[in-house]
Each structure stands twice: as C-alpha cells, then as structure tokens.
Amino acid sequence: MNKVGLLLDQLHRAETRLGAEFRRVAGREAADQEVYYVCRDLARQCDERAAAIRRLGTRYGRSIAAPSGPGPLRTALTELRRRASCLLGRQRISGLLLLRDLRALFLAAQAANVAWIAVGQLAQALKDGEMLTLVNGLHKENLTQIKWIKSKVREASPQALLT
C-alpha cells in the first residue's frame, strides 16, 4: 500500500479545507477589509500549495483529484454571505464573530501544519532532497499563515470581549 500517497492525500485534504476556510471567512468578514483581502490572498496560497502536493503525489504514484470549483449555488451563497457580513459589520457582535472565525481558521491551519511536519519527516527518511526543499518552503508559508491568524487574534480579542 502506498503510504506516502496516503499521507500526501491527507495533507492535500488539509490544505484544501484550509483554503475553503479562508474563503469562507473572507466572505463572512467582508466589512473588515484587512481580514477580507488577506484571507483571499491566503486562500490562493492554499490553492497553490494543494497543486504542488498533487504534483508530488504524481511522482509517488498517487493521483490526487483537484477539488471541484464552486457551483453556481455556492457562488451565489458566497455573495449573499459577503453582503450580509457588510450589514452585520456595523453591529458590535461583529467583533465576537471575527474571533470565532479566527478560531476556526487556526484549527484548520494547525491541521495542515501537523500534516506538513509528517511529510517533512518523511521526505528526510526517503532521502528525497528535492521533496524536502519543496516541503520546507511550503510548510514555512503555512506557518506564516498561522502567525497571521495569531496576530489577528491578539489584536481583536480585547476589543471584541471588553466593549
């Protein structure tokens, strides 16, 4: 059984979920322009990482399917969510909702983090230098995303909870 492929599959799933989570939060936090734009950028980073994982999968004989794009219903929902969040963004509750979203993002990002750690170890054990360089670079990007989420949590918590 191709355990390398299984692990890559798992990592791919984690990155795909994280990307979807960034998109979802961007939509829900459209009134907070920084969260909105950064989350959209970070979602794209996740897409690119997922694509890199698929290419790695091919090398190890595992064909990983690319996630399907959003259907028309999902696209309409996303737009609806964006508009709703712009209205909700004028309510004080929006601070708490942001914290909840950041928590969900953090968990999704950590799931990817753990998977990257495992894949990095694997690359070393396999003595696959090319894979190791690739994994190190992409894992670092994932860690920077986590750093960003932590920055936002630190910044947003007092305002959301005390006012």
């Binding site: 009134a31 322009q33 004028r90 006012t163």
Partner: peptide
C-alpha cells in the same frame, strides 16, 4: 483605519 472600523461597528 481600525479605529474608524471600531467606530463603525459601535465598539468605540
């Protein structure tokens, strides 16, 4: 920009 955002959401 965040100060104005907090004014917008009513927490300032």
């Amino acid at each position: 920009m965040e100060i104005f955002r907090f004014c917008e959401q009513g927490s300032i």
